[in-house]
């Protein structure tokens, strides 16, 4: 009896089910609720823009991998699809096609492939593209169509609640007066404010978060640390002067905080390796977001906060280590020898 040629390789001989393409697929599934809500709010425009963005991102990655780097196409891992969806999630739903093309080129071409593709980029590619667009096309990037649920007329554009808030404060209005112009917290939670395509609904994003946690794609550390930080710091300011600062709940529910906490800051490649590192990372993003929102010139700061913290990740990785087996004991021993 013969078994033919046997494979000989070092252990382990089994592998867990989870592989990179499966992870990417799970993340895409997690983005579905937010996407459905975008369709509900903005109609087919949301589908059109997201499809364009995904197509451009995948195509650009394919062309660069194939013809510039002479590597086999790396598009099948699904990461370019995620970048495409996230880029669309981070822009107004009525953005012209050529702007999203430029955004895709910057995201994939500069943000990802110039560093060597998946796993090598220091900055979140979708955010690199988004911020590039924000600086290059400030008008188009800051006029959001109003969500259908709040206004059933033809699409009119408006600033986001955060933008209205900041302008109002500058004009000398009080927080109380401004809040009366705002949709209710329930509207914020379920996603009928105006804003970027994917950041509308805290509720839809939380479903995505729950799915990723359940599938063990990500851990709770970054989202919780970031959200708690935003809540606590804005809460402190609100307690100090409620006529000048909005409630912490307002800050959690509006703008890109939830989208950032769930999908942008949790990007594996550009976030720290260890749980301790993730907690520091989330704290840093939360802190910077609040500082930009309260004292910066932009009404919203999540994108900048994440990109800045992306740059700090290598340092966090260097120092935020998990407890090592035997380390505690070794320290005790050192202490013992010192004392005797």
């Amino acid at each position: 009896m013969s078994a033919g040629l046997l494979t000989v390789s070092p252990s382990p001989h089994i592998h867990s089910e989870l592989t990179v393409p499966q992870i990417m697929r799970a993340v895409i599934i997690a983005m579905v609720p937010a996407f459905l809500l975008a369709i509900y709010n903005f109609g087919l425009g949301a589908v059109y823009l997201t499809a364009l963005s995904v197509f451009f991102c995948v195509a650009i990655e394919y062309l660069i991998a194939r013809y510039l780097l002479n590597k086999s196409a790396s598009i099948y891992d699904g990461s370019a699809v995620i970048t495409g969806v996230l880029l669309a999630f981070n822009v107004p739903s009525n953005l012209p096609w050529y702007i999203i093309l430029i955004g895709s080129m910057v995201s994939i071409g500069i943000g990802k492939m110039s560093f060597g593709g998946l796993g090598n980029n220091p900055f979140n590619p979708a955010l690199v593209g988004r911020v590039f667009l924000l600086l290059s096309f400030p008008v188009q990037m800051t006029s959001w169509p109003i969500a259908k649920a709040t206004l059933s007329l033809d699409a009119i554009t408006s600033a986001t609640p955060l933008g209205i808030f900041k302008e109002g404060l500058r004009a000398g209005e009080s927080v109380q007066a401004l809040m009366t112009k705002m949709p209710s917290y329930a509207d914020f939670f379920f996603g009928t404010q105006s804003g970027s395509l994917g950041e509308m609904s805290t509720f839809a994003l939380l479903i995505g978060l729950a799915y990723m946690l359940y599938k063990k794609i990500i851990t709770w550390h970054i989202p919780v640390s970031m959200l708690v930080t935003v809540f606590v710091i804005t809460g402190i300011f609100w307690l100090i002067d409620p006529s000048k600062y909005a409630t912490p709940l307002f800050h959690i529910l509006t703008g890109g905080v939830m989208l950032g906490a769930v999908f942008m800051a949790t990007d594996y490649v550009t976030s720290p390796f260890t749980h301790r590192g993730m907690l520091i990372f989330g704290f840093g993003i939360g802190l910077l977001t609040v500082l930009i929102r309260l004292f910066g010139s932009y009404p919203e700061g999540v994108s900048f906060a994440i990109l800045i913290m992306n740059a700090v990740v290598p340092f966090i990785n260097r120092f935020a280590k998990e407890p090592r087996y035997g380390a505690k004991r070794a320290k005790d021993k050192e202490l013992e020898t010192v004392m005797h």
Binding site: L18, T19, V20, I23, Y268, F273, T274, H275
Partner: peptide, 8 residues
């Protein structure tokens, strides 16, 4: 694939 820094 490349290391995706998942930390697993």
């Amino acid at each position: 694939y490349n290391c995706v820094h998942c930390g697993k």
